[in-house]
Computed example of a mutant assay.
Amino acid sequence: MDKLKAMATFIEIVDRGSLSAAAEAMDRSPASVVRALADLENHLGIRLLNRSTRRISLTDEGRDYLLRCRRILADINEAEFLLDARRTAPAGKLTVTAPMMFGRLHLIPLLNQYLAEHPGLQVDITLVDRVVNIIDEGFDIAIRIGHLADSSLISMPLGLTAPVICASPALIKQQGTPNTPNDLASWPIVRFNQHHHWAFKNSETLNTENMSLVMTTNQVDTAISSAITGLGVTRLFSYQVAQALEQGQLIRLLPEFEPTSLPVQFVYPHNRLLSYRVRAFLDWAGPQLKEVLKGR
């Protein structure tokens, strides 16, 4: 018995819903498909499918075996695909999405370099400050900041970033240096997006609606520039304000109260049978972004 061929036949039967449909799809006789399934069940010593004249259904053992068959055949196909693909350069269309400022600061420079080295590749990049459903919206890869809620996505960790409170030196001179989050209650606030609550370590929160809110914006650059001018204190991710902090335009406040850092990661729908252009870019860009975020 050709075990791999028998596994493929078993998967085809399940996917097609009947032995006759599987035989037609595989251009084989129904008798040969029935025989292949019977040989596989005899070899394993278990029944994989419950069969009647109208329908088939997986047994509990068949359900477990199906998952392993899919994984084994996917691994084989991926290995063969990658060996073949690496004989040529990455080509085709790569669709990527990322948060706006992260993309502008860190991802686009890498993409520009990668495209210069691989002229057969085309990139479609969307920068947007919302959680994108990459499966429904057709993206190959996304940069995601935060913990994954969707278990169907695979992640490649790149580093960490933390929400930080910062203000201009002039505003701090005017208001005084805060010692606890509650000291910010009388400060003017520049709020990015609709984040009504600023969470701190030990579950302490500030409701920005009850504070002196002077601006709400959906643009990170606007929040940063307004904070630099002294309009108000703001709360953004550390990578977003890294340059302003390094240049002394903003000062980080209450670092001992900052909440746990959040993961920055590449995410993609699955790690099996990735196209070579996707796998090649992940393998190339991942280590470089890890190095960038290490210093942020």
Rank of each mutant, 00 (worst) to 15 (best):
T97H: 03
L73Q: 11
L94V: 06
Q113E: 09
R51A: 11
R63W: 06
K93Y: 02
L73R: 11
F102A: 00
L44P: 05
R87D: 06
F81I: 07
A91E: 09
T126K: 14
Q122F: 12
A85W: 04
V123M: 10
E80H: 13
D84V: 14
K93M: 03
T59V: 14
D75H: 12
I76Q: 11
N112F: 00
Y65G: 07
T126F: 12
N42M: 01
G103D: 03
P109M: 04
D124L: 13
L44E: 00
Q113V: 04
T59H: 07
T59K: 07
L40N: 02
C69M: 09
L107M: 04
L67C: 00
L110C: 05
L83G: 12
R70A: 12
D124T: 12
I108K: 04
R54K: 12
R54V: 13
V123Q: 04
T59R: 06
L107N: 01
T88H: 07
D39T: 13
L115G: 05
H43T: 00
E61I: 14
G62W: 08
M100A: 08
A85V: 05
A74Q: 15
F81C: 05
N77C: 04
R86D: 02
R70T: 14
L66H: 10
L110E: 05
G103C: 06
N42K: 09
G120S: 15
R47Y: 00
A116I: 05
R71L: 09
T53Q: 09
A74E: 15
M101Y: 00
P109C: 04
N77T: 10
Q122L: 12
L115P: 07
A89G: 03
L94A: 04
E80V: 13
S52T: 15
S52W: 03
Q113N: 04
L83C: 08
R68V: 13
G62T: 12
T126I: 12
Y65E: 05
A89K: 08
N50H: 03
L67G: 01
L73H: 11
L58D: 04
R63E: 14
D75V: 02
L105F: 03
I56M: 10
L58C: 06
T97P: 09
L107I: 00
L40D: 02
E41F: 10
D60A: 10
M101H: 03
D75Q: 13
R63N: 10
R54H: 11
L82K: 07
S52E: 05
I46V: 11
L121K: 08
A116L: 06
A74P: 14
L107H: 01
E41L: 09
A85M: 05
F102S: 02
M101D: 02
A74D: 15
C69Y: 06
R86F: 07
R104M: 01
R55D: 06
R70V: 15
L67W: 00
P99F: 01
L40G: 04
E80D: 10
G120C: 15
E117N: 11
R71K: 13
L73V: 14
